[in-house]
Simulated scan of single mutants.
Amino acid sequence: MEARPVSRKSMSDEIASQIKEMIDHGRLQPGDRLPAERKLAEQFGVSRTTLREGIKVLSEAGLLTSRQGAGTFVSRPDDGAREGSLIEAILAGDYDLQDVFEVRKMLEPEIAALAARNGSPDAKTRLEAILMEQEQAIRSGEVVGGIDHRFHQALAEASGNPVLREMVSALYEGFSRSRAEDVQSSQRQRASLAAHRAIVEAVRNGHAMRAERAMREHLDEVERIIFDNQRGAYSRR
């Protein structure tokens, strides 16, 4: 495939747009493997981190499929069907936030423990980078819901379990309801940052039980803050 260097403005979006254009015009066919990450980043003239963000946009849209140890491929029709079936089966309903948190509390503490056991140095560095980005965003007064999702997705990737990684990705539509802007209070953002620090420290040092406990406490605290805020809003009506 041939890629044009991208401008500094919205680089990841432009990467996604160029790759989608290649797919739409048949220059990339279903089942085709994208060039190696390093080579593709050089062609676009961007960092590998920026390239990953662009690829992630298309992966979430179902146009690309990443296979651990094999690379990133243009999705086949049956790839989308499998993912769609999972999402439709689990997320077609209008689920209550309480239901979302029950699922999160079943999955994410174990994901954190596995990340501490199995996380590679690169995976741990990625978590630390996202944590720094979250700190900077909070200092700037930005809403960090998207960063929060990337943190939890990076934990799933660090777990080394591709099934968990795909489950977190597929379930994000439901999880995102517990990270929506209307529940992103300043109190929650500060609590989330402190909890993420504790989780990253445990994962970095390979302490699985501490990582699991930190994640469980994090989810319990976030759940309490959200529902306390909702009760306060209702009482003011």
Rank of each mutant, 00 (worst) to 15 (best):
Q153F: 08
E142G: 04
F151P: 04
L193C: 13
D148W: 00
G141I: 13
G160A: 10
H196Y: 03
G174W: 02
S186Y: 01
S176R: 08
V163S: 06
H149G: 13
L155V: 10
Q187N: 08
R179H: 14
G146P: 01
R179W: 08
A170T: 09
P162C: 12
E173C: 00
V183R: 08
R190E: 12
E142S: 06
R150Y: 02
L193E: 15
E173T: 09
F151K: 04
V168I: 15
V183H: 05
A195K: 01
S176H: 03
A195D: 05
R165C: 08
S140W: 14
M167C: 02
A191H: 04
G174M: 07
G160N: 11
G141T: 09
S186K: 09
H196E: 08
R188G: 02
S159A: 13
N161W: 07
H152R: 14
Q189P: 00
A191D: 13
N161T: 11
S169Y: 03
S169E: 08
D148S: 01
L193T: 11
P162F: 14
V144A: 12
E181S: 04
G141V: 02
M167D: 00
L155M: 15
S178E: 03
E157R: 13
H152I: 14
I138Y: 11
L193M: 12
S169P: 03
V168K: 00
S185C: 09
S176N: 05
S176T: 01
E157Y: 10
L193F: 10
E166F: 04
V163A: 08
L164C: 05
S178H: 05
R165A: 14
L193I: 15
L193Y: 11
V163N: 04
V144W: 01
L164V: 03
A156R: 00
E142N: 08
S176A: 12
R139W: 03
H152W: 14
V168E: 03
S178Q: 02
R139F: 00
G141H: 07
R165G: 10
S185M: 11
Q184L: 06
L171C: 13
G174V: 13
L164I: 07
F175Q: 03
A154M: 06
L171G: 12
L164S: 01
A194G: 11
R190Y: 04
S176K: 13
D182S: 15
Q189Y: 01
Q187S: 06
S140V: 15
S176I: 08
V183L: 06
R179P: 03
R190P: 01
G145A: 14
